[in-house]
Amino acid sequence: MDSIIRSYFDNPDNEDKDFRYEAYVHIMKATEEEVDWSYEVWDQLKEDLAHPDNHRRSRAAQFLSSLAKSDPEKRILRDFPALWEVTKDKMFVTARHSLQSVWKIGLAGPEQKEMVVSQLANRFDNCKDEKNYTLIRSDIIQGLKKLYDEVKDEEIKQKALNLIETEEESKYRKKLAALWRT
């Protein structure tokens, strides 16, 4: 891990919001590809999933989702339940940012992909009683679309289209279908 990335992880509570934003952008950019330093920060990120600061929880979930492709030990399979809890965070923006990044875990391998698709589909089916459930469903369909675009797995496409068809309200069903086409 280079010293710049290390400094970003060493100062997660830096009071300078510009520094925190710069750190976020650089870490997300760095984790677009596989990295060899994922386990240097993994345990801290896992702890941060339950941190009192919602920003730390959100960043931890997003970073772990992005680091899953750099996880040859498949720790994400064991640690996923803690990350998934952040997608249901009491702070909706935290929950939403976390949910929007979960699809990246599916890039790590077949087991991870199956787990993510299954969890997203289950959440889609069972989120109707949640506040802002239409946004949650939208994020799920967009996540499945992003995963499909990366891995071209027709089962993901069919799962998403089947989920869209289960939406009872036609205006939301049309919005979800439009997300899939874009």
Rank of each mutant, 00 (worst) to 15 (best):
Met91Tyr: 08
Val102His: 01
Glu150Phe: 06
Asn14Met: 00
Asp13Arg: 04
Glu111Pro: 02
His51Leu: 03
Ala177Asp: 13
Ala60Met: 10
Pro72Gly: 07
Glu111Cys: 03
Ala23Asn: 11
Leu120Gln: 10
Phe92Thr: 05
Ile76Gly: 07
Lys113Trp: 06
Tyr172His: 13
Lys88Trp: 07
Ala50Gln: 15
Arg78Gln: 14
Tyr39Asp: 10
Val25Gly: 02
Asn54Lys: 09
Ser70Asn: 08
Ile141His: 02
Phe80Asp: 12
Asn162Tyr: 01
Gly109His: 10
Leu64His: 07
Lys146Thr: 09
Glu34Leu: 00
Ile27Pro: 11
Tyr24Phe: 14
Ser38Leu: 02
Ala68Gly: 05
Lys145Cys: 14
Phe124Glu: 07
Asp2Asn: 15
Pro52His: 05
Ile136Arg: 01
Glu150Asn: 10
Asn54Ile: 07
Leu99Phe: 05
Phe19Arg: 03
Trp180Ile: 09
Val102Leu: 01
Asn11Cys: 06
Ser170Tyr: 12
Arg56Asp: 14
Ala61Ser: 15
Lys146His: 11
Ser70Ala: 05
Lys174Glu: 15
Lys46Phe: 05
Ser38Tyr: 05
Leu49Asp: 15
Asp153Ser: 04
Ser170Ile: 15
Leu67His: 13
Phe124Asp: 08
Gln112Ile: 01
Ile156Gln: 11
Asp16Glu: 13
Val86Glu: 08
Phe92Ala: 07
Ala82Pro: 07
Leu135Pro: 04
Ser170Arg: 14
Trp180Arg: 06
His55Asn: 12
Tyr133Val: 10
Glu114His: 10
Met115Trp: 08
Phe80Thr: 10
Tyr24Trp: 13
Met115Cys: 04
Glu22Val: 00
Ala95Ser: 13
Glu15Trp: 01
Lys74Gly: 01
Glu168Phe: 04
Ala30Pro: 11
Tyr39Phe: 12
Ala68Lys: 12
